[in-house]
Design a protein around this nucleic acid. Structure first.
Lengths: 341, 341
DNA sequence: ATGCTCTGCTAAATCAGTTTAGCGACGTGG
DNA sequence: CCACGTCGCTAAACTGATTTAGCAGAGCAT
């Protein structure tokens, strides 16, 4: 790429000045005593030649590359990754940076490759992202420079960006309470593994905490809590069927994510029950499917783009070193209503 | 990043040789007359020091960066992008390259920024990707180096990688014919804009061609063709309801994509019709939702990862300069059966 | 003994920037 | 009249690799 590009030397020559002068002017160095006229000439020359500095040459000297490494365990399949990347991309562009993306797939060999590629290229910082909110071990090799954890925490005291799952849980509980639901609120998606092992998930426990504490504050307890081995539609379907077999039918169901909710919709459809007439449903994530369901599913949205954006901001502008909790906004659709009187 | 890394000079010193010798040995240069012993010493020294070449320094001289730019119109929201990126990432890693990702969002300013970032960094090649299979205009500035179009074509004669939508259409038609469906096959998702304007979509027309020619070869014509302003669930829902109002009910429905099929499922569920007992449904894309539906939706999968992978291969290993059609495999699930006898 | 080739290796230039150290001209105070 | 400081600018070093040009010594033929 890059046909005969103009170099700094070309600019300097055209401006009738030295490379030093040109460099200083173009970098807006303070405290230099170059005349206003010299400034003009350099800018003009650079403009006329369409000059753009060679990043390799510059970073050889300065050790800065205006490049951020985005390392994640799994990039694809999930649109979650896409959102994180897009947010990061936007924020990076605003700060004149670019993203170098690598994926470890949780594989040690791939991780090593990613780390080496990053170190070889002297990136200015690393965003280490996980696809499921969880705790992970950061490879020590990258701790030499700035690191931000995205959708993850680690044993090391590194700045991290997380969705506010607990807040979302509270908000969801409040939403149901506000509609008048009380003692017949059920939950689908209990899962000890997810709740207890932070290396698997931080979201399950946080969401549950938010829900429970808010209900408890209103003097309400969950009617039942359906277990699910995974948070997939088929498990939501099964859990909902079990729920409908019980003597007391709930007035509202909280699903731990939208895929479970989708399964719940399927079971309710088969049972001939209507949402939200017979039962309200509310959930977490704002998977695209939430908007496609009939009726649309009310859900607390994972703020992917915000998170990706925040990660870059913390990395480049410096964070307070702690955790950034990004709020999960509630998407209000038609799946929640007041219970039958 | 990168605490005191060893440089080539360090390696040379430790090996008791010149930088020249060290460089040649490590690059495996042919035709050099360095002794076997010199080779040993250099390798040993490099190993002991954990030497890794500085990419900036190297590329300053060689103009090679082992970096590929992945430019796309829209990265996020769609998991399609994720698949393309992941495939490209894998293939790049196998060839010791790394991906620099930028997004234009279809915005001229952003595109300019992306191009400049790419040129400044002297990437070895560019993958220009579109999220919807379509024809696009490649900015002339990147034509100085190797370019591969991914999921897109362009007026310029550039190598491109596309899904085989026409083949998929044919395969879908054959699948229905093989099950015994004949004169009562309907289609949902006609859309003149998509079919006629290659800048919007190449897929619509290709899929339709494949379907029609295969049916025609069997002496069959489509029963009806439902129009849809967009390929979203709500439009599939509406189209399916219209279809059900007609006197002859089809035995099978081909949806132009899975989101339409999802809408169709919703309409069928409401109408109390069962899939595939009353009606078979088949579709394109293999959106994750296809596997989540009850029954699972048979669909021709967009081969995202293969395509991303292929793009890198063509870029780096050299393609034949033409279009690479990547086959769309049929995911057989339970939504297709023989029509009622 | 001289010239030649071949072997094994190295000094120095180069890539395109940034940064350090300092030079000549001018004005000014003693 | 001279020392000194300020102004406006530049030469040269430096970053870490690759690459070109070429040197010293050995072996061989004449």
């Amino acid at each position: 790429m890059g046909r005969e590009r103009a170099t700094l030397a070309d600019v300097a020559r055209r401006a009738g000045l030295s490379k030093t002068a040109a460099s200083m002017v173009l970098n807006g160095r303070e405290g230099t005593r170059l005349s206003a006229e010299a400034h003009q000439r350099v800018f003009a020359a650079a403009e006329e030649l369409g000059y753009r500095p060679n990043v390799a040459a510059r970073s050889l000297r300065t050790r800065k590359t205006a490049t951020i490494a985005f390392v994640s365990d799994i990039v694809a399949t999930t649109r979650f990754a896409g959102g994180l990347i897009r947010g990061a991309l936007d924020a990076a562009r605003e700060r004149d940076h670019v993203l170098l993306i690598t994926e470890t797939q949780g594989d040690a060999t791939f991780e090593r490759y990613a780390i080496e590629a990053i170190l070889d290229r002297q990136v200015d910082g690393v965003i280490y992202a996980a696809m499921a909110t969880r705790r992970l071990a950061v490879p020590p090799a990258i701790l030499g420079g700035p690191v931000v954890l995205l959708n993850a925490t680690s044993p090391e005291p590194l700045p991290c960006v997380l969705p506010d799952d607990e807040g979302a849980g509270a908000m969801i509980a409040e939403t149901l309470l506000a509609q008048g639901h009380r003692d017949r609120i059920a939950l689908i998606g209990r899962n000890r593994q997810k709740e207890l092992d932070p290396e698997i998930s931080l979201a399950a426990d946080a969401r549950l905490r938010g829900i429970r504490s808010t209900l408890a504050a209103a003097g309400v307890a969950l009617l039942t809590e359906g277990f699910c081995p995974e948070w997939l539609p088929e498990h939501g379907y099964a859990a909902m069927r079990t729920l409908l077999d019980r003597p007391t039918r709930p007035t509202a169901v909280i699903c731990m994510n939208d895929r479970l909710a989708f399964g719940a919709y399927q079971a309710l459809g088969e049972a001939g029950l209507s949402i939200p007439g017979d039962l309200s449903v509310i959930s977490f994530d704002d998977d695209p499917i939430a908007a496609w369901l009939r009726p649309g599913l009310s859900t607390a949205a994972l703020p992917h783009e915000q998170m990706g954006r925040r990660a870059v901001e913390v990395l480049l502008d410096g964070g307070d070193g702690g955790a950034s909790l990004v709020p999960m906004p509630l998407r209000r659709r038609r799946s929640v209503a007041a219970p039958d009187a």
